[in-house]
Amino acid sequence: MTPLLEVEDLHVRFPLTEGTIEAVRGISFTLGRERLGIVGESGSGKSQTGRAILGLTARPGEVTAKRLAFDGIDLMAAPERLRRSLRGSRMTMVMQDPRYSLNPVMTVGQQIIESYRAHKRVSGRDARRAALAMLDEVRITAPDRVMALYPHELSGGMGQRVMIAMMLITGPELLIADEPTSALDVTVRGEVLRILDQLVAERGMGLILISHDLEMVASFCDRVLVMYAGKIVEELASGALDQARHPYTRGLIGCLPKLAGDSHPLPVLTRDPAWAR
C-alpha cells in the first residue's frame, strides 16, 4: 500500500540578496494514517516543511526533493492546478493564531461555506447545512449564531475550533497542524487538542503536528521527529523519550520544568555547532 505521504531529501531554500538561506536541509520521512509530531525550536524549519508539502512556500523560496508524494501522486511534478485542487480538499493545514488566520471582514459562515464550495458542487443551502454540522462537530453550540459572527467577535479557543471546522469540512486525508494551540490560553488548549484528536481518529486522517512543545507532542502523537537547523536530528517513538540519544533532544528534555524538587538555577541548553552540520 502506498503511504499517505513520502518525503525524501526535501530542501527549502530562500535566495536573498545577502545570500541563500536554507531553511530545510534534506529531510526524509514517510507518513501513514498516523500521528507524527515534528518538534524543534523557532527557525528549525518545521513550519517551512509543512508549507512545502502543501506547496505554499512564500516567494522567492525554492523547494527541491528527490521525492515528495501524496498518496502516490508526485507533487514535485504535479502542475499548480492539480496541487491547488488537492489543497483544501485532500490535504490541509491549521495555522497558529485564529486572530490572524481568519479573514477579518468575512463572517465565520461565509468563510466555512467558501472552503466547502471551493471543492464541492453543492447549493448554498446544502453548503450551509454542512457548515452547521461541521461547527457542531467541533462542539460549537448555537452554530447558526456563530455563523453570523466576525472573527474578532470570537474567543481564541472558539476561533481555533472554527479554523478546524473550516479546514476539515471537505474531509481531507492529511492534516498539518502548525502550532495549533500555542496562541491559545492554557485553559482551552486541552479542549482544542481533544477535538482535533477525536476528529483525526474518527476520520482516520494522517496528522503532522508541528510544535515546539515536546511533552505535548509526545503525549499526542505516535512518533516524534526532532528538527534542528533544518535537519531531522532524531526520530523517537513517543513512549520512548527517555531513550533519546541526540544531545539536543536530551537537552530539551532536561530543560522541561519539574514540579517535584527545586531545580535552581534553571537548566539552559548549551548548543554545539556540530549539531547543525
Binding site: 505554499l56 495555522m95 490572524y100 488566520s101 481568519l102 479573514n103 471582514v105 468575512m106 467558501e114 473550516m166
Partner: peptide, 29 residues
C-alpha cells in the same frame, strides 16, 4: 502578507479569488 491570505490559499482557492475577494476586500477599507 497577512496570515488569512495563506489560509485562503490552503483552502485551495484560485489566486484570483485570493487576491480580489480576500486581500482586496480588506484593502478596500
Amino acid at each position: 502578507a497577512q496570515e488569512y491570505v495563506v489560509t485562503a490559499r490552503i483552502k485551495g482557492l484560485s489566486e484570483a479569488r485570493v487576491i480580489w475577494r480576500h486581500a482586496l476586500r480588506n484593502a478596500a477599507v
